[in-house]
Design a protein around this nucleic acid. Structure first.
Length: 626
DNA sequence: GCGGATCAC
DNA sequence: TATGGTGATCCGC
């Protein structure tokens, strides 16, 4: 029972070349894994090379020991250790069985993936170096030469001087001060960073107008066209881009140039700060590059998954191959697919403009000094509801589902959700429908003491003015006239291809939007509640004949019986059926806009040839399938 | 669909 | 003394 994990073990077993998985190891030492976990989520970030991680780990451990936060981390670590024990037991069991068919499936999948490999694009990932800290240093040059961090309580980022002491983003301020007593912490000023980010983006747009903002300080570009137009090497182009960014904004950026977004992201980290790394778009070069790449360097593999993979002997992306027969069973199909793409160095080559991104939720949460009294908790909830109302107003959304999140003083997190009868956005409604959830939680958890509370709406619909509404009434808006669409004329086929997706998306949005409105009006009329917004619709209704999409009855839209008629028809047909029946027939599922997470865990991507093979694989991986 | 967990920044 | 906020995805049930 002496086996430890992480770096120690690597020294003992430096080579793992066998095609068979290495022998199982005894469960890791809890103490070590916890210490490693406490090092934080940004361990692999640049600037830590010269740091004595063991020493840093000790400082963090001792600073944290005994705190509620620490205790919770300990619990989580213990749970993970248990989970890993189960994973190892499951693999031991799988090893007793015949893995030939699993192996063949994995190899088939690899062959299939290989067909999707696209080496024709020059994808670039741009990452601003210690962005917030760099912006602060521009304002206060004296901070340039001393350890400095942005953020109070928890560091959001820190400069490279601070990193040499072991300070990192996500680290508690007081822990950072233990590591580096002379650390200067400056408060966040998001407006400032945002303005500077716009300056940077202005330059990026010169190189690829369709570039993708991955976050405030990160972007993906496709430089293929730029290089063609200017007869330039991707490396030259990126050198020039970085120089231009620095010249115009005084911000240094690092860049990765590769065949796809996943590789480019890894590459941008190679020569940080203020450097660039080019990975030639050659299959063997890519495979070799990934072979020695620690799993943790891949976007999407964090502390937990890293440890799970480590437990079965996978430290680098190259190690994945030897374990391919087990991965699906041990971690699920999605993880299997993701890992195989890591091994092969595959990733998306499509870059999506930020404007094309559709958000899926809007929420707000806040940490506070421990609260316990029901009255105080209700007050807090009310306050958060008002905050969320403001956010929803700004973003122009309403939500069909409302989620409440609480964090106990022990750092234990719970969430509850409910679906109000209509999409909501007003503080009164947000409060009204979240309060019962809070009350229920207070019942379930006696003497509930909280340190955080949050609200979030999902299944959102825009409240932006639509061009044409659900019932075909023309509304006055900028977009209504743009495409010369008539009230009942939907000439989808003749639309230019590039407008199709946007139009389809807008159409669905409009329908959902109007549906929400109708649904809400319907609910409120049922409850005899006066809706002051109700008039707006009628005021903007066009003065022309209207045809009911449900029963085809024709009548003037402003007729007094109009709303009554809608109610009547709706009462005969459920909302869902209405949506179905009014979806444009030309909407092909394969043409729908690919949705992509912006921040957050990267979605496991489905590559091109998978589209055709999807059905096949579904049977393939289904329980007892094949 | 719900709740927990993980991940990125 | 003391460990964030926003948004997304995946899994098991």
């Amino acid at each position: 029972m002496t086996a430890s994990r992480d770096t120690d073990d690597a020294a003992q077993n430096p080579q793992q070349t066998s095609d068979r998985p290495r022998p199982l190891r005894t469960p890791s030492n809890e103490h070590d894994s916890l210490k490693y976990h406490l090092l934080g989520p940004s361990l692999t970030k640049a600037g830590q090379d010269t740091v004595d991680q063991h020493k840093v780990s000790e400082v963090i451990y001792n600073a944290s020991k005994g705190s509620k936060f620490f205790n919770n981390e300990e619990v989580k670590d213990k749970n993970l250790t248990e989970k890993i024990t189960k994973i190892l037991a499951k693999r031991r069991q799988l090893e007793q069985l015949d893995v030939a068919s699993d192996l063949r499936r994995a190899d088939d999948y690899i062959a299939e993936l290989e067909l999707t490999r696209d080496l024709s694009q020059a994808i670039v990932h741009i990452d601003c170096d210690a962005f917030y800290a760099a912006v602060e240093e521009l304002d206060r040059p004296e901070l340039k030469d001393v350890p400095m961090a942005v953020g109070k309580g928890v560091l959001t980022t820190c400069n490279y001087h601070a990193r040499r002491f072991g300070c990192r983003s996500g680290m508690a301020g007081f822990v950072a001060m233990k590591l580096c007593p002379q650390l200067i912490c400056v408060p966040m000023n998001f407006a400032k960073y945002s303005a500077k980010a716009d300056e940077v983006r202005e330059v990026l747009a010169l190189y690829d107008p369709g570039f993708e903002s991955a976050s405030c300080d990160e972007a993906y570009l496709n430089l293929t066209k730029y290089c063609e137009d200017h007869s330039m090497d991707p490396q030259e182009a990126v050198s020039q881009l970085r120089a231009e960014v620095h010249e115009k904004t005084k911000i240094t950026v690092s860049a990765g140039i590769a065949a796809n977004a996943k590789l480019a992201k890894i590459c941008s980290n190679q020569n940080k700060p203020n450097g660039q790394f080019y990975l030639p778009s050659d299959r063997q070069t890519i495979i070799d590059f990934m072979k020695t790449m620690p799993t943790r360097k891949v976007n999407g593999i964090g502390r937990v998954f890293e440890r799970e993979l480590d437990a079965i002997g996978v430290k680098t992306c190259g190690d994945i191959y030897a374990h391919r027969a087990y991965l699906s069973q041990l971690f699920g199909q999605k993880a299997f697919q993701f890992l195989m793409q890591c091994y092969l160095g595959l990733g998306r080559t499509t870059i999506q403009r930020a404007e094309d991104y559709e958000r899926k939720s809007v929420g707000t949460e806040t940490t506070f000094k421990e609260l316990q009294s029901p009255d105080a908790l209700r007050d807090k909830l009310r306050h958060i509801a008002e905050e969320l109302e403001g956010d929803l107003k700004r973003t122009e959304y309403k939500g069909r589902t409302l989620c409440i999140k609480i964090k106990l003083y022990t750092y234990e997190v719970h969430t509850r959700q409910t679906t109000p009868p209509f999409a909501i956005h007003k503080a009164d409604d947000l409060y009204k429908y979240s309060l019962p959830m809070l009350e229920k939680l207070m019942k379930e958890i006696p003497n509930m003491r909280l340190r955080l509370m949050g609200l979030r709406v999902t299944h959102i619909v825009t409240t932006k003015k639509p061009g044409i509404d659900f019932f075909g009434r023309v509304k006055i808006s900028a977009t209504a006239t743009k495409n010369t669409t008539t009230a009942n004329g939907r000439d989808w086929e003749v639309w230019p291809e590039e407008e199709f997706e946007e139009a389809a998306r807008q159409e669905r949005n409009d329908e959902m939007n109007e549906l929400e409105k109708l649904s809400q009006e319907y609910e409120q009329q049922q409850q005899h509640i006066v809706d002051t917004d109700g008039k707006t619709d009628q005021e903007t209704v066009a003065e022309e004949q209207w045809t009911c999409p449900i029963c085809a009855l024709q009548q003037p839209p402003n007729d007094a019986t109009f709303n009554a008629h809608i109610d009547f028809c709706l009462s005969k047909q459920t909302i869902k059926e209405v949506v179905k029946s009014t979806t444009p027939p030309t909407l092909d599922a394969s043409k729908t806009v690919q949705k992509k997470g912006k921040r957050g865990r990267p979605k496991i991507e489905t590559l091109a040839s998978e589209q055709q093979a999807r059905e096949k694989r579904r049977a393939f991986f289904s329980p007892g399938g094949a």
